[in-house]
Amino acid sequence: MKLTTVWLDGLWDRNPGLIQLLGLCPLLAVSNTIDNAIGLGLATLFVMVISNASISLIRHLIDEAIRLPSFVLVIATLTTSAELFMQAFDYPLYQSLGIFVPLIVTNCLILGRAEALARRETLLISTMDGLAQGLGFFFVLVSLGAIREQVSDIIILAALPSGAFIALGMLIAIHQVIQKTLKQFRAITKSDIKGRRVRTTGNIP
């Protein structure tokens, strides 16, 4: 697996918030203000990176039977630590995020990455994947927070959970449109290159 694919996947092609639609509960619930979004985004990123790294490190030590309990153990440990750090360094933020800090444990994005990637890949790839996916989630969370905070003064709906669904739907739609245009563009340039390609060596299928 290439590092560029890992980064592209996390940030754009398979973005956790826009394509995989994982971790929707915190994404919808905590995106009502920018401050909350940044706080929870960073906490999730922290848990994500270290959980991917440590699961990659212990991947040879665990077999099928204790795989899931070990993952949950790692994630729960990290989330509790994140909670303690947040209380120590930014108590007001901890207060305004409330229940959603301990709920990072149940964020299926983190368990999903552990299960899908970190238990097979090297430390470097897993850490980078944690970073990429975490940042991808962070950016969606913050954009949603920014949009909802701006709009909620005009339309009350934006502050409510249903507003979060609508705003997220619009973001996904925009993502799809850009993705489609990009694909078409890529197809055009590809055929262009193909047309002008000159055969230099043998054995091209």
Binding site: I58, L61, L73, T77, S81
Partner: peptide, 20 residues
């Protein structure tokens, strides 16, 4: 394997303990 899991648990909880 079960001992390994127990060991993980021990390590994890002592880590949380230290941070606490």
């Amino acid at each position: 394997m079960i001992f390994r899991l127990a060991l993980f648990g021990l390590i994890a909880s002592s880590l949380v303990g230290v941070i606490y």
